[in-house]
Design a protein around this nucleic acid. Sequence first.
DNA 1: CGGAGCGTTGACTCAACTCAACTCGGGTGG
DNA 2: CCACCCGAGTTGAGTTGAGTCAACGCTCCG
Lengths: 253, 253
Amino acid sequence: MGRLQTNSSAAETHCVGCGARDWTVCSSLTDDELSVLEGIRLGHRDYRAGADFLRQGEPQREVLTLLEGWAMRYCLLENGSRQIIDFCLPGAFIGFQPDGESPKGYAAQAITDIKVCALPQKGLMDMMRQTPNMAIRLACIGYRDQMAMARHLANVGRRRARGRVSNLLMELFVRVRMRSEAAASEAILLPLTQELIGDALGLTSVHVNRTLRGLREDKIVSLKGGTLRILDPDRLAEEAGFEDGVDVLESFS
Amino acid sequence: MGRLQTNSSAAETHCVGCGARDWTVCSSLTDDELSVLEGIRLGHRDYRAGADFLRQGEPQREVLTLLEGWAMRYCLLENGSRQIIDFCLPGAFIGFQPDGESPKGYAAQAITDIKVCALPQKGLMDMMRQTPNMAIRLACIGYRDQMAMARHLANVGRRRARGRVSNLLMELFVRVRMRSEAAASEAILLPLTQELIGDALGLTSVHVNRTLRGLREDKIVSLKGGTLRILDPDRLAEEAGFEDGVDVLESFS
DNA sequence: CGGAGCGTTGACTCAACTCAACTCGGGTGG
DNA sequence: CCACCCGAGTTGAGTTGAGTCAACGCTCCG
């Protein structure tokens, strides 16, 4: 379901040459540690846009690192609505749960076509026991993501629609910019529908639409056909509640 | 400011006898590891209700384990409003940040008078490098808290006031119940003002008040003078969106 | 050519906010 | 001991931000 091919074969690159490595768990591992990791990994996988590659309520024996494309983690509520927890960019570490046996509290879905690198939970836990470096790295990622989620929570809980949307766009802009070498133009690709934005921000897609119109009419941003253009960075930062403009970058994944 | 006394002295109990231990980082450490930890800890501290024992924007060289009382972590927004990230009960691990030097993204405040156990960030990191067990434990806590925060986010983003309040009360009830041996009566102590509840849920205190009135009039819960009484657990679970009633307990801290 | 999915817009509704007054209880100082 | 004050909780009236419902346009794709 959505899965394109089985574990890809010999053609698969080694971890050392991994394009996403700078953003993954694997960064800051020694070459030795990296080869251990390479020993236990289950290989790469591709999923189509829209594929649920991690299901809520099911236990999960694997952990995934996003290598290419956009994904998201989300919670499904009993009332049928969906809360998007976060948007994942290459390097994101998805699905880790200390207690591998208990059912996951969230699901994950591919937004664009994606490629992931799969690791067995168990093998990873074993490795953590032997190489503290790995355990530390995982802990760091866990707390970093926690911070990002706290910001997201504050955004949803305490800002009006315009502020929420501005804040999210700003955050995504920054995150995308960080991993593309050339920071030349102010346009980035944002493969999000208005419904996705709404589900991340606790708004309806209709209201996201109106809000975006407002921002467009005020010449602050334009989001059209998957392209986000920041027309007035200062105004946007203000609407978004970024006090220090773009200095906060460090704290993003 | 709010601090009652300096590091308490010899009277301080050993980690082995720590009353909060079952809920702390320290659980699941061997006696040896525990004595290492005991070697680096900075001692206990007491803070008055209302004291900000961890400030947003300042780097933090210490990590705290809550031993007694209630606390909260919160974000202050530029617009002056406050978003409560979570409520902390004894055992909570507060203030850990992989990169100890960068400023904290949130603050923490005592809700009641509290007692905490302080550890140096640096010492802890060193210990993690030597005892993988500790690193693993920290990672687990980080991901567990992440899950709790995701639930909180979903609650705030995708439920109406009545559902949010019900959900929060249910969660707190369960958490408090878990750490009190006798689960006899249905009443617990909840030292939260309506304003705190509002700031956690993205509501105004006025609206929390009306919502609580509604729940009281419907004979679902009563929250009066710091005492929470669940009058109709089933209805509450339904309002709160707890599908399995009280089976989800495991996943709480 | 016809759908399906996404975006856009308008008209109407309603949940939650704002503002403001008033109560109640506990603490404090004269 | 009493008057006062302050913080928390209540309640009402009016406002508004966001949701709902519904129609319609556009584009891509089969």
